[in-house]
């Protein structure tokens, strides 16, 4: 053994470049890499298609941002999934079966560069996600500030188990949420009893309704069509039936509707 050790010492140590090349040529590395690429692609395709396919029609600025963000996050996480599933699958393919344990593997207790790189890369990805989210948040609140003056106000009340909508400027109150297109809108949300959560699904915003505590959420509808309004907070017996509908209308249609309801055009 000791003489063998001597021989090794006498050979010149490989340069870092050589070591990288030897590493990359190893069968296990190639296998994992190919599998990793495969899984990354699977998740990229999934990211491209899953949310656009299943999420409802984008009908507001917020919904557009939400969906774009979910697709982007799937792209970012695709390589992570690739690494994890690539390595896992390669080891799974090299599995040992039978009733006796396999031979011992190499005694790798740790590999400091790998741990450090892993830590740094995952921190950077978390940082990317954080920054992205914060920027989106900021865009949202800036939009809110700039739209505040021109926005239409709708006072939303959640009652066990019906939503109602009051349009103070128009002087009407209804059980359907109709809104004019391209008009920024502010929802002042309140509950007459327990907690509810106001969720106009296609508009991609949501906020809880609390007793005596107005919560605010805003958006701008960008597409004509029907919307669903749901309650996203369990509120007792008929929580499931606490839903209603509405329409995003042209300004003219909206004004006609307001007049028909006995209100006045603001």
């Amino acid at each position: 053994m000791s003489s063998h050790d001597h021989e090794v010492e006498e050979v010149l140590p490989p340069t870092p470049g050589d070591r990288v090349i030897t590493f990359l040529k190893r069968k296990d590395v190639v296998q994992s890499f190919v599998l990793g690429i495969f899984f990354t692609l699977v998740f990229v395709i999934l990211g491209r298609d899953f949310y656009p396919k299943w999420m409802p029609t984008i009908m507001s600025t917020d919904m557009k941002a939400n969906e774009a963000l979910m697709v982007a996050f799937t792209y970012i996480s695709a390589p992570v999934c690739g690494v994890v599933l690539g390595i896992a699958t390669y080891t799974f393919l090299n599995r040992h079966t039978g009733d006796t344990p396999p031979e011992d593997g190499p005694a790798i207790r740790t590999n400091t560069p790998v741990v450090v790189v892993w830590g740094i890369v995952s921190s950077l990805m978390a940082l990317l996600a954080i920054i992205w989210g914060l920027v989106e948040l900021n865009v949202g609140s800036e939009a809110a500030a700039s739209e505040a003056r021109t926005a239409m106000v709708v006072e939303v009340t959640g009652s066990q188990w019906v939503w109602t909508f009051k349009y103070p400027a128009q002087g009407i109150e209804t059980h359907e949420l109709n809104l004019p297109i391209d008009q920024p809108v502010i929802f002042d949300v309140i509950s007459s009893d327990v907690n509810h959560s106001f969720w106009p699904v296609q508009l991609g915003v949501k906020v809880d309704a609390n007793r005596l505590q107005t919560t605010v959420v805003h958006t701008t509808p960008t597409k004509l069509g029907a919307i669903d309004v749901k309650c996203a907070e369990l509120c007792g017996l008929y929580h499931a039936y606490m839903e209603t509908t509405g329409q995003i209308m042209t300004a003219a249609d909206f004004n006609n509707w307001v007049t028909a309801q006995g209100g006045h055009v603001a």
Binding site: D28, V84, T91, R95, P102, G105, W118
Partner: peptide, 18 residues
């Protein structure tokens, strides 16, 4: 992520007994 690293690192170059 570190949890994943630990498990993946343990699997790496092993022949897992299924």
């Amino acid at each position: 992520g570190l949890i994943f690293l630990v498990i993946l690192g343990t699997l790496w170059r092993g022949k897992p007994w299924m």
